[in-house]
């Protein structure tokens, strides 16, 4: 029984990270209609930025996190302005392929800018083990769960009440009508890329604090991806919650079946979800009229 609880709790901890990255996917999909295949790579770049700040400037956790958030926002804005904006109005295929190309560029730039060895992101906090009632979690894992819950609440309020959030939903629902209402689609896209980069980047930094940094970290994007599909590509909150489900499922599959199942449980889940409920648990069912 305690094995089950252990698996579930550590699954929730890793699932929170998947959830953050899945929210990153969903924010961009909701605003632009594109699946950003470079999400995992952007996450990794932000984590490396945080590591660079921590090793060269200061190890103060607040400075590092603030620097990473700013860096992530700049990264998202730069990608949107330089690479994605010129593709506005092009077919979906072109836009998606640009993100795929961006993914391989960012992935290989890690080896040229930094190096190919794993590093520990040691900020003095986050690695200490917290114990409560037989459970033990690292500080950063708890922080991941708290961050996810906080962001979920924040995004609920943002989409419900703020002008930008409503504009974003308007662009997602019908970009032409939104343009006619005076919403700048380009600005919404820029905001979405920056927000997605920041959310996923926080996930990346937390991941690097618990585990290590390495050029293989982009695989985190592949782990977050099933969560977005399960939650619904256009549902930001759903994706965040689905991250927790994926994390727990993956851990249980790894614990009770074979260890290899842990890596592919999420992908198997994608295929099942697409067969049963392709718009995800919380996504909007697409109705096509001819």
């Amino acid at each position: 029984m305690s094995f089950l609880i252990d698996l579930t709790v550590s699954g929730l901890a890793i699932g929170a990270l998947y959830g953050l990255i899945a929210m990153g996917f969903a924010v961009i999909y909701k605003a632009t209609g594109l699946v950003n295949f470079a999400q995992g790579e952007m996450t990794m770049i932000v984590a490396y930025l945080a590591w660079t700040i921590a090793t060269t400037l200061t190890g103060n956790v607040f400075v590092v996190v603030a620097g990473a958030v700013i860096g992530a926002a700049v990264l998202g804005l730069a990608i949107e302005r330089i690479v994605m904006r010129p593709m506005l109005g092009e077919p979906l295929f072109a836009g998606v392929m640009v993100t795929v190309a961006l993914a391989v560029i960012l992935r290989s730039s890690i080896t040229f800018i930094w190096d190919a060895y794993p590093h520990a992101l040691d900020l003095g906090v986050g690695r200490d083990v917290l114990r409560a009632g037989g459970l033990s979690l690292r500080g950063a894992q708890v922080a991941a769960i708290v961050t996810l819950l906080g962001l979920l609440a924040g995004f609920y309020v943002f989409f419900r009440f703020s002008k930008f959030g409503i504009a974003m939903r308007a662009v997602a629902a019908d970009d032409r009508a939104a343009l006619l209402m005076g919403v700048s689609a380009a600005r919404i896209h820029a905001l979405a890329w920056a927000a997605s980069s920041v959310i996923a980047g926080i996930g990346g930094v937390l991941f690097a604090m618990v585990y290590d940094l390495s050029p293989a970290m982009f695989a985190l994007g592949l782990k977050g991806f099933p969560a977005t599909i399960l939650g619904g590509l256009d549902s930001v909150l759903g994706s965040g919650v689905a991250g927790l489900i994926i994390g727990v499922t993956e851990n249980l599959a790894g614990g009770y079946l074979t260890p290899g199942m842990k890596d592919i449980a999420g992908f198997l889940m994608i295929i099942v979800v697409l067969m049963v409920r392709p718009f995800g648990l919380f996504g909007e069912r697409e109705i096509v009229r001819v």
Partner: peptide, 18 residues
Amino acid sequence: GVHELKAMLYGVVIILFL
């Protein structure tokens, strides 16, 4: 980094052509 160089080239070429 031959593998990385190749990957980067492919990415750049894809974006430029598109």
